[in-house]
Design a protein around this nucleic acid. Structure first.
Length: 198
DNA sequence: CGTTCGATGCACT
DNA sequence: GTGCATCGAACGT
């Protein structure tokens, strides 16, 4: 079952927790690639210094202010596309960053896309559990790009589904990879999972 | 193990 | 001009 908009129209920490074990799927012309979400971070409101909305509304962060259940995709460090699920109702800028997946379908396609990264030329094949480890890596593996920004996660090529998968123990830790707001323990992950980036 | 650092594009000041 | 919600290689212990 595809997660409905109501799933995202809730407190962001609840959405982050409940996204663990759900399946992020991308259907492209080249085929389907999907994985179970094992790591996610909450970014909540203009008072969260690490949230893109901390600077107020701009053209780039406008999707955060829009309706829940859509993707917020942006380019980071000039190289990586990072994908978020927008949460809470319009006017409450918040989202969950998807940081890692356990690959399920389309592993060969993922491996091909990862190998196309310029810095991987001539390198060994990426091991399965590293294919979607890290937010930049998972976007590349699934083929997510800026074209997916603001697209609904409830239909179209980029979807999140509940397939009833079981997860292990859930852990809350400080968010990583940011320079401010690291004290907030808003990173949810499947404890000890080998695809978690932290 | 650990830390440092370059690549690379663009939003924001 | 500055600074990233990253990745992975290169070095030092």
């Amino acid at each position: 079952m595809i997660l409905p908009v109501d799933f995202y129209d809730r407190p962001t920490l609840d959405v982050a927790r409940d996204l663990l074990g759900k399946v992020l799927m991308y259907r492209s012309r080249q085929g389907v690639a999907s994985g179970m979400i094992v790591e996610a971070e909450a970014y909540i409101g203009e008072d969260d210094p690490a949230c893109h909305a901390a600077v107020g509304r701009t053209e780039r962060n406008a999707p955060l202010y829009g309706p829940p259940g859509r993707a917020y995709v942006y380019l980071n460090y000039g190289i990586h596309h990072l994908v978020n699920a927008v949460t809470e109702r319009e006017g409450h800028p918040s989202a969950v960053l998807i940081r890692a997946l356990e690959p399920l379908d389309g592993l060969a396609l993922m491996r091909r896309r990862r190998a196309q990264a310029p810095w991987r030329a001539g390198k060994a094949a990426v091991p399965d559990h590293h294919l979607c480890r890290g937010p930049g890596n998972l976007s590349r593996a699934l083929g997510i790009s800026l074209a997916d920004n603001v697209r609904p996660l409830t239909r179209g090529p980029l979807l999140i589904r509940d397939e009833g998968l079981e997860i292990g123990e859930l852990a809350w830790d400080g968010r990583i990879g940011i320079r401010v707001g690291t004290d907030r323990r808003w990173r949810a992950s499947v404890a000890g999972h080998r695809s978690v980036s932290g």
